[in-house]
Computed example of a mutant assay.
Amino acid sequence: MSAQPWRQFGDGPLSRAAASVHILLVVELLLVLTTLPGLVPLVLLGPDPRNLPLVAACLLPVGPAVSAALYALRHQRPDLTDLRPAAAFRRGYRANLPAVLRVWAPMLLWLTVIAVNLAHLPAAAVPIWWAVPLVLVGLGVSLVGANALLIASLFTFRTRDALRLALHFLVRAPGVTVGNAALLAAAAGVTAVFSEAVLALLAALFVLAFLRIGAPMIDTIRTEFTA
C-alpha cells in the first residue's frame, strides 16, 4: 500500500518540477566548484588589455565544467526517485576532459589573439574598420567552438571530426546558430552589467538553455552520424 503512493509522487508534475530544481541546483554548485580556481582571479583582474592572456588562463576550467554539466543534464535517469546529477557530472567530467580541452584550449587561444589585436588597433596604426572583420572572426570561432563543445560533451568523435561537424552545423542548423549567438550575447550582457560572479551563479540555467538550443543538432548527429 505504501509503495504505490510513493511511485505516484515520483511521477507527478510537482515531483518533476522539484526534481528539475534539485538537478539544476546540484549542477550549479558543481559548476561553481569546478570553475572556482579560475573564477576568483578572474573577478580580481582589472580591465587591462595586458591581462587578456591571464583571462584566457582563468577561463580554461570553464570548458570541462560546462561539458560535465551538459552531460549531467542530458543523462538524467527517468526514475525521479533515483536522481544522481552529481555522479553524472563527475562521470562526464572524467570522460570528456581530454576531448573537450582539445576543443576549448585552441578556441581560447584564437579568441585571445583576436582580443589582443582589437585592444591594440590604435597602436598598430591600422584603419578602425579592421575591427569589424576581427569581431566577425571572433564570433565565428565562438559559434563553431560552442557546437564543438556540445558535440564533444555528448558524442565520441575524433577532434577533427567534431570540428568538421561543428562547422557543418553552423550552416545546416541556422536556428541553433542564431540561438547560440543570442545566448553568447546574453552572457556578455550579464557580465558587462553585473560581473563574472553573477554569470557563474546563473551558469546552470545558461547550460540548460545551451542544451535545449542544440537539441536539433544533437538529434541529427545521433540519427545520421552514429551507428
Rank of each mutant, 00 (worst) to 15 (best):
residue 29 L to Q: 04
residue 143 L to Q: 02
residue 33 L to H: 03
residue 131 A to P: 01
residue 160 R to F: 04
residue 7 R to K: 11
residue 224 E to C: 01
residue 118 L to R: 12
residue 19 A to M: 08
residue 112 T to P: 09
residue 75 H to P: 01
residue 121 L to N: 09
residue 137 V to Q: 08
residue 70 L to H: 10
residue 2 S to F: 08
residue 10 G to R: 12
residue 208 L to I: 00
residue 107 M to H: 09
residue 206 F to I: 03
residue 214 G to P: 00
residue 40 V to Y: 06
residue 21 V to T: 12
residue 97 L to A: 15
residue 98 P to H: 12
residue 19 A to G: 15
residue 130 W to M: 13
residue 85 P to W: 02
residue 181 A to E: 05
residue 112 T to G: 15
residue 214 G to V: 00
residue 155 F to K: 05
residue 64 P to F: 06
residue 92 G to A: 01
residue 20 S to I: 00
residue 77 R to N: 15
residue 202 L to Q: 11
residue 194 F to M: 09
residue 135 V to E: 15
residue 64 P to E: 11
residue 47 P to N: 06
residue 41 P to S: 11
residue 90 R to H: 06
residue 128 I to K: 12
residue 49 P to R: 09
residue 206 F to P: 07
residue 27 V to W: 05
residue 109 L to V: 12
residue 188 A to P: 00
residue 149 L to R: 03
residue 46 G to D: 15
residue 41 P to W: 03
residue 108 L to Q: 10
residue 138 G to R: 05
residue 71 Y to F: 14
residue 197 A to T: 10
residue 4 Q to F: 07
residue 220 T to K: 11
residue 154 L to V: 02
residue 43 V to N: 14
residue 182 A to V: 08
residue 165 L to W: 09
residue 53 P to T: 07
residue 48 D to Q: 12
residue 110 W to A: 15
residue 144 V to R: 03
residue 38 G to Y: 06
residue 212 R to C: 00
residue 136 L to G: 02
residue 173 A to M: 06
residue 73 L to Q: 10
residue 199 L to I: 02
residue 168 H to T: 10
residue 139 L to T: 11
residue 204 A to I: 02
residue 91 R to L: 10
residue 183 L to C: 04
residue 3 A to H: 14
residue 219 D to Y: 01
residue 89 F to L: 08
residue 70 L to Q: 11
residue 157 F to M: 11
residue 140 G to P: 00
residue 142 S to I: 00
residue 86 A to W: 05
residue 161 D to Y: 02
residue 84 R to W: 02
residue 151 I to M: 03
residue 151 I to Q: 02
residue 7 R to P: 00
residue 213 I to C: 04
residue 64 P to Y: 07
residue 212 R to E: 11
residue 2 S to D: 13
residue 166 A to V: 00
residue 156 T to Y: 03
residue 45 L to S: 07
residue 37 P to H: 10
residue 109 L to H: 05
residue 135 V to A: 15
residue 58 C to F: 04
residue 221 I to V: 13
residue 23 I to K: 03
residue 96 N to T: 05
residue 170 L to V: 00
residue 196 E to I: 00
residue 53 P to F: 09
residue 181 A to W: 02
